Amino acid sequence: MDVTEGTVRKICTDAVFERGERYLAEDRILDIHRVDTTVTAVVNGNRQYDARVDLAADGFDPWCDCPYDGPGACKHVVSVLLRCVDDCLPDEGDRLDAALEAADADDLRDFLREALATDVALRERFFARFGESPTRSVHELRDAIDRQFEETNPDYFVVFEPIDFSEWFDLAGEYRDQGRYASAAAVYRALIESLDGNMERVDGTYDHFSQAFKRALDGYVDCVTAEDIDVDEAADAVAFLRDRAVSGTPLLSEHFERAATKLEETLTERREH
């Protein structure tokens, strides 16, 4: 997708666009890098925020860990995109490829193993990519996601700022790319359960968490539908959604009910054909 002022305006409000322009003019972008089509940056606002865009994606697939919960992209993302309008930044992908080509295989293996030993999220994606079975159950995955809620604001029950769930969506995406839909569904289910269970804690950034919930719910339904499951497994998946519609957060009950109906109809149609 071409990065122009016009395409940037399409993903944000006029007010946010103006603030993004001001942030760019005030040199608030502290650190910015591009690898292939992905641009990551640190933008100075009330504190330093991490922002990320994909220049090739429709709508640029914006992400930022700021508390903005209004329509469209935030001013931090807009400032980063506007930075790319006239100067799309040097692509560090070639440098990365060259370093990989030049690296000794044993040294590279040692480096990778050390990174995998200390980074749980990276290790999970590695297992997903290279055919290992999931190392954590739905319950364990949910516990890890729940800890993010606890650690975000440890002194208060209420969560005031967005939480970055990208490692979980990336992990689910890795499983989906490998055609391992049951494993991806487990990650989505853990996200659904955690978000549903913690939604009452959210204050001021509801849209952020609501969008993450809907994305996880859609992913769960898609993966259960794509997986070759028997009648009992299908019934369990539908029952999970219907149970949540009754016992979960009231604001999310309609989403659960619609997802259960869609899943049931899709699975029934598939069996009939």
Rank of each mutant, 00 (worst) to 15 (best):
R136A: 07
F149E: 07
A105Y: 04
L100M: 13
L122D: 03
G131L: 11
F127A: 15
R136W: 02
A105H: 09
P134T: 08
A98L: 14
L108A: 15
D110Q: 02
A102L: 14
D104T: 13
L100V: 14
T152N: 08
A144Q: 06
L108H: 13
R142Q: 11
D106P: 05
L122G: 09
T135P: 03
A117N: 15
R142N: 04
E140D: 06
F127Y: 14
V120I: 09
A121K: 12
D107E: 15
H139L: 00
D106G: 01
F111T: 11
S137Y: 01
S137P: 02
T118H: 01
R129Q: 06
F130C: 11
A99D: 15
F126P: 07
A128T: 07
T135V: 08
E114H: 06
E150K: 04
D146C: 00
A115F: 10
L141E: 01
A115K: 15
A102K: 14
L108K: 11
S133I: 03
A144T: 00
E132W: 00
A102I: 11
D143T: 09
R125H: 05
R136Q: 09
E150M: 01
R109D: 12
A117I: 07
I145P: 03
D104Q: 13
T135C: 05
L112W: 03
F127I: 12
F149C: 00
D119H: 00
R95Y: 03
D146S: 08
E150F: 05
R109K: 14
R125K: 12
R142M: 01
A115E: 12
T152I: 03
E101L: 03
R147V: 02
E101V: 09
A98K: 15
D104I: 13
D143Y: 04
D106T: 11
A128F: 07
L96I: 15
L96G: 08
F126L: 13
P134R: 07
R125Y: 06
R113L: 12
A105V: 14
E132S: 12
D104H: 13
A128N: 00
D143I: 07
R109C: 08
I145A: 02
R136N: 08
F126T: 13
T118D: 00
E140Y: 00
D97A: 14
A98P: 00
R113D: 12
R129P: 06
L108E: 15
